[in-house]
Structure formats: C-alpha cells, structure tokens
Simulated scan of single mutants.
Amino acid sequence: MSGTNTGVPSVLAHELPHPVPAGEFAACPVGDVFRRVGDRWSMLLVILLGGRPYRYNELHRAIEGISQRMLTRTLRGLETDGLVRREVFPTVPPSVEYSLTPLGRTLLPPLSVLADWAVQHEAEINEARSRHPGARERGR
C-alpha cells in the first residue's frame, strides 16, 4: 500500500480496465495465486504441511476423499510454485517427505487472516445463502 492509498485495500488501489481483457486476467500473477488458493485441495495441504512435514501416504490418509492422482497433482503444483519441498531419502524403498518451503510458510499468515474472516462471518454468509434463490439446488 503506497502513501497515496492509505486506508485503501490493496486490491482496490489500482483501477482495473473496463472490460477486463481475458488475456490480461489470465496472465495476472494475482489471479494465478488466487486460482491456486481457491482450488479444492491446495490450501488444506498447505495447512497440514504448516504443522509438520508429511510422507506421501500420511498425507493421503490425512485427507479423506482425495485420490492419489489428485494428491500427486496438487503436490506437484505446489512444488512447481515453490511452496512445497519434496525430499527423497535414499532408503529401500525410497521414502519421500513433503514440507513447506520458506516461501510456503509466508502464505500461512494471509491464509490465517482469510480463515479468521470466514469463521467470523460464517453466520452472515449462511444467512445470505439461505435467502438466495437457488442456493439449495447448488448445495449451499
């Protein structure tokens, strides 16, 4: 936040073009991070790995409903983004451990703020959903 935007949330500090060009939105680094944060499994993995390193099978057992394929894909994506480290130990058979990188650890505070906001406003969100037409059909 710059001095000229004191008190203005950073997401509102820059005016977006109207309409927002699809290519610009797709290439935006903020949108890219939001897509990662908003996917079904990534933030759950970041939270788990924020507590301690895990072996692959431990993670698979720790998350009910995630397939091995999706766990592998999500871990690879987080590793590609520099948020998770994959360490292979020279044992027979080889064992693999996943942990957060220093960059991944920096995601925990803003993620905590978002989680705290969600908990604080859960009743209001649920009330709004109950009044919205079609909310029940979408499983909300």
Rank of each mutant, 00 (worst) to 15 (best):
Q120K: 13
A118I: 08
S67P: 00
P17A: 14
H132K: 13
R129I: 03
V92D: 14
E137H: 05
R136Y: 06
S112D: 14
I66P: 00
Y54S: 01
S99Q: 04
R140Q: 11
F25T: 09
E137L: 12
A118W: 08
F25P: 01
H60M: 09
E127G: 08
L108V: 14
H14P: 05
V92T: 15
P53V: 08
L45T: 00
A22H: 13
S95T: 11
Y54G: 00
L78N: 00
L16K: 12
G65I: 05
S2R: 14
A62H: 04
G7L: 04
M70Y: 04
H132Y: 14
R129Y: 06
A135C: 04
L71N: 01
R86I: 01
G3D: 15
V20W: 13
E24S: 15
A135F: 03
P29L: 12
S42C: 02
S95M: 10
M70D: 12
L71E: 00
L83M: 11
R35F: 07
T106E: 13
C28S: 14
T74R: 03
L75M: 02
S42Q: 00
M1F: 10
V46K: 03
L78Y: 01
R136Q: 11
Y54F: 06
L108M: 13
A115I: 08
T106S: 14
L107E: 09
P110D: 08
P53K: 09
G23A: 12
S95A: 11
V46F: 06
R129C: 05
A118Y: 07
A123I: 07
P29H: 13
E97L: 05
E64L: 11
L83N: 07
V20L: 15
T80K: 11
G134N: 01
E124R: 13
W41M: 06
V33P: 14
G50R: 03
V11Q: 12
M43C: 10
D32S: 15
L59G: 00
R73N: 08
D116P: 05
P21Q: 01
N126F: 06
Q68F: 12
T91L: 14
W117V: 13
P110L: 14
L48Y: 06
P29E: 11
T80G: 06
P19L: 00
E64C: 07
L83P: 09
W117H: 15
L111Y: 12
S2M: 10
Y98D: 01
Y56T: 00
R36S: 11
A123W: 07
E58M: 02
P93G: 09
E122R: 13
L48E: 04
V88P: 00
